[in-house]
Amino acid sequence: MIGPIISSGIISSAWDNLFAILLGMGFGFALEASGFSSSRKIIGTFFGYDFVVVKVFFTAAIVASLGLLYLNYLGLIDYSLLYIQPTFLTSAIVGGVVMGIGFAMAGFCPGTSLCAAAVGRIDGLVFFGGMFIGVFLFSEAFPLFENLYYSGSQGSPMINSVFGISPELFTFILVLAAVGMFVGASWVQKKVKKVEY
């Protein structure tokens, strides 16, 4: 079966929502079981006492990238049917910076706040409520930000084409960089005073 199996019509799109729930469950389970329901564990990355975010996040990115490239190589997935986020340079950077501030303030991102709320953390629930307000404010104030929102449009480029190398080579370099980062993170974690949480 050549994936993505829903976009290419192998199974009906009515199954789409069922798979959405199942995949969401896997996502939520992986996040919660890795400890992402605790904001103090997440924020440890930025103070050097717990690098769980870096480890989980980059391992996941590598596994998914490698997996997609292998599936593509074996002809099991049609890369051109995958949803590749369009790149809007300016809004991606500005939005990322804004999110970074929110991240440092609250210690959650949207997915992890949901996990925290699911296991009864009120701060997670409050964060999620705050997001509704933020999204509402953005939507209402959209005309003010419209130019920023559409500026820096680049189409949907892949990062390897920026460096002029193949996706496979880029992923290989990414793996080496990630391994280096994991070793560095473990080293820092040993040096930094443990924080009880």
């Binding site: 490698l66 190589y73 002809g75 496979e168 992923t171 290989f172 793996v175």
Partner: peptide, 22 residues
């Protein structure tokens, strides 16, 4: 695990490209 990961990634780079077109 690290060696396994690096070998897997290297495999992608060195595998011959699929010449035949679908």
């Amino acid at each position: 695990l690290t060696i396994l990961l690096v070998v897997l990634a290297l495999g992608l780079v060195v595998l011959p490209k699929n010449k035949e077109r679908k």
